[in-house]
Design a protein around this nucleic acid. Sequence first.
DNA 1: ACAGTACAGTTATCC
DNA 2: CTGTCCACAG
DNA 3: GGATAACTGTACCTGTGGACAG
Length: 549
Amino acid sequence: MPKLDPSQLRAADPLQPWYYLHNARTLINHCYQLYSDLLTPWQQQWSAWQALGQEAQALLVRMLMRKGELFFARQLIYSEIKHPEQALAELQALDWLEPDPEVSQAELANCLTLAQVKELLAQRLGRVPSKLRANTWLGLLPADTAEHQAWSAWWPQGPRLYRVKHQLWWQELQLLFFGNAHQDMTDFVLSELQTRRYEPLPWHPDNRPFANREQLLLYQQLNTLAKALEAGEPVCAIAAQLMALPELGWMTHSRDKLMLRLGLEAQRQGNLELAEQLWHTSQHPEAKVRLLRLLKPRLRAAELVALGLELRQGVQQPEYWLALERVIWPRQPLEQRQWLGQALTAPKVTSLVLAKGEQRVEQQVLQAMAQQGWQGQHVENHLFVGLFALCFWPAIFAPVKGAFFNPFQDRPRDLFHPDFASRRQDIMADCWQQWQREDYRQLLLERWQAKQGTACSLIHWPKLPLTLVEQALACIAKEHLTAIFTRLWQDLRHHSRGLPDLILFDQQGNYQLMEVKSPTDRLQDQQRLWLAFMQQQGIPACVCQVRWQ
DNA sequence: ACAGTACAGTTATCC
DNA sequence: CTGTCCACAG
DNA sequence: GGATAACTGTACCTGTGGACAG
Ligand SMILES: [Mn+2]
Ligand SMILES: [Mn+2]
């Protein structure tokens, strides 16, 4: 059985020699033992990997973890690998390494230093141009130069060059192990160095990120298309591929987000038709707002309202209702808008005149309030979302089936899913029950002590010092916190944004929240909604409108 | 519904 | 020569 | 002059050394 308990992966500081090899073995073994049904195209690689000696495995891992596929022999010297020549020969024999590979012009430009380019050009052209720039010297080659040539043909007397093979194998294993494309081997290292600590979780063989190979491939396709958009490839081509994807299951949201972004790019390029099509297909609420705005010039007032109402049906989040309303009735005060069911209470606003300084405006307001006897912190979302996470920690990290599949997760996969709480009813009930107890403050402080530093996506530990938690628990009424937690559970993704900038405490144990606005800044919708909610709940919150001078 | 996200600051444009 | 960037390392 | 949209910057481990541009 693979060992997935982070505490067992943790080593003394500094790292052991061969740490990267051990990490790679952990990853590879884990994948082949648990996901062998997803790795059918890569069966030979398993035995070819097993057949390698320690130094050859180590050298391979070193190469796979570096950027690109091409390496000069002199770049493959590592102190722990005593016999690099033997390792290279082994890798070559088992088809991990290609000596004297075919190299494209782009690859050539990438792997050579300018000093090497000088030598190469001297041989090929018989002269060395005086000015050599990294991104233009390829143009000095004769126009009929082949796009691809064997390395030895590019530079007959040049140093030895190798191409490492099966990079796709390695990328796929990493994707399988982590279950996402954003984590990599550095997570092992950071965990071992104790730069990060992860919640230890019992491991279960049913916890797999991908149910089958099709899902894995679809994930990769989505990723490729996202990168293509980033790289500025033609939007039409990307859109065509995106539209052609089959049912994506749990990845539908990623597709919708990508369609939204692609539509923005299409609009930027003037392709309004494509933008409309993408935003029509995407179920992302922001896409509906964009769609309405795009169509607005073509519609009469009544049609606009009708379309807005229609789009509103498919959008659950009030944040986006406000945005839809703004398209239809721009510059209308919130109280006059109609769809929210109840009018949005306008927030209390206080004014403050300050001399414009170097610091951020929030810091300046803090100082000004300190002179009026209010000590405080710039906390943004971190305080309330952090307290929330402490309170519901056992539910967040409950070992629900399918929620955790790698040892370096800072949240369960379904944290933002609407069904998150209902899948954890018992443990949620426990958390609420503990919260109702008289000694809830003590319990939360103990939780802070126990979990401090452990990675949790809802907590930024530097912004949640013990003193702040103590002060917050001492001064904020329990009903206020309960109300805030309840609203957070309604839509964790959207409601964990837009909480006020500052929390302030006075000598009598009162507190107040403050959203700071510089003259050029405006309230965002999420901030409006939180402020209105707090107003209703009797939570002391206001907007501090700063003026300069 | 699942790694891009959050917020402030700047500019341009509209009304 | 200097500062910036970025790949790499732990 | 306020509202609005669009875009940018910065943070998410830290340190080092080579390569490059000026
Ligand atoms: Mn803020
Ligand atoms: Mn603010």
